[in-house]
Design a binder for these strands. Structure first.
Lengths: 188, 188
DNA sequence: CACGCATTGTACCGATCGGTACATAAAACG
DNA sequence: CGTTTTATGTACCGATCGGTACAATGCGTG
């Protein structure tokens, strides 16, 4: 028997595996074991092998953030877009039980393979948020610092809530970060 | 010819390799390649193999933080100990170019192997800082939140400064976190 | 110097790694 | 319905994985 997949369906499955196991920890046999997708299919969709799989996953993640978060921050009403960002972040990372693949790749040597993508993901996030904050009334200088603090704070919350195995810590930290953005907006 | 090592000298070398390559990325051949230490020595010092090596490294890291940071926070003048903590963190993580091994292990499946150690490292850090903040005049409730924010913020700064390959971002973020602790101390 | 023990280099093990080749089965298309 | 295209399972490859066995070398102690 043969199960037929499409590339677009495979990428999210790979994403979860890379998230859980990391780049080095993800092996072809583990992929087959968890998804049922054999080497034949994998190398058909991703002739470049494991590296191309990871690159496709990163591109997919990047595209999701671009559409769901960065674009609205640049385009929509800034306060609404920022509120939507917090809600999306909370959902996307499943209250801290799902990690940020880009952040995880940034930590070890995997970074060297994908450094432009990794950098770009965070640069664009910070910049989009900074623009929204400026449009919401922030001073130019404060906006950059606040945007960096928010994005950095999310990454820290992911590490810590996972280390402590405590979803509530993620929610608390995100609430605190949300409050900080709003407080600085008013107070300067 | 034979070079003779001691276990205590090997652990820090292993630590740097695990930091750079992660648990799965660290192979015995890479260890030999980077340190010159052969399998004979490694399995003599660490009969349990790679897992015991990583455990030894984690214990070493933990011991360093206990002695250099947690104990002073619990014992010494709180403001001086907190100042020393920021200085030590800045040095230890080499302005963000060196990652937190415990945080990195928390992100992927490696966490399952070492979850008690990982959890304990962060629990004790937060608790020691919380105690210091209380002794410095914080309200009980504020102290826990502020301690969590500081520790989480450090982890986030490590991820982000590494993703952006920007040591200055690490310094800026640590300065901001330092200011937050001091500001809340005064303002409540 | 001689003995004994801690330490080390090297050869080797089965298992698994990422990757390739290819015959075959399913879809797509006429 | 036959043909072409796309997708898939399987067998296989050399390299490397973590780990073991052991003889040889260094060092401390008498």
């Amino acid at each position: 028997m043969k199960t037929v997949y499409e590339r677009a369906d495979v990428v999210p499955l790979l994403a979860e595996i890379f998230r859980e196991l990391g780049y080095e920890g993800t092996t072809l046999s583990r992929i087959t074991e968890r998804t049922g997708i054999g080497k034949g299919s994998l190398y058909h969709f991703f002739p470049g092998g494991k590296e191309e799989m990871a690159a496709a996953v990163l591109a997919d993640v990047d595209a999701w953030f671009e559409r769901a978060i960065y674009e609205p921050l640049r385009r929509d009403d800034p306060r609404a877009a920022i509120d939507a960002m917090w809600a999306n972040v909370m959902d996307y990372f499943r209250s801290g039980s799902r990690i940020c693949l880009v952040g995880a790749f940034a930590l070890d040597e995997t970074r060297q393979r994908f450094s432009p993508v990794i950098r770009d993901y965070f640069v664009r996030w910070i910049e989009a948020l900074r623009q929204a904050l400026v449009r919401a009334g922030y001073a130019e200088d404060d906006a950059l610092a606040a945007a960096e603090e928010a994005v950095s704070g999310i990454q820290g919350a992911l590490v810590l809530s996972r280390a402590l195995d405590d979803k509530d810590m993620f929610r608390r930290t995100l609430d605190r970060l949300t409050g900080r953005l709003a407080a600085t907006k008013r107070g300067g």
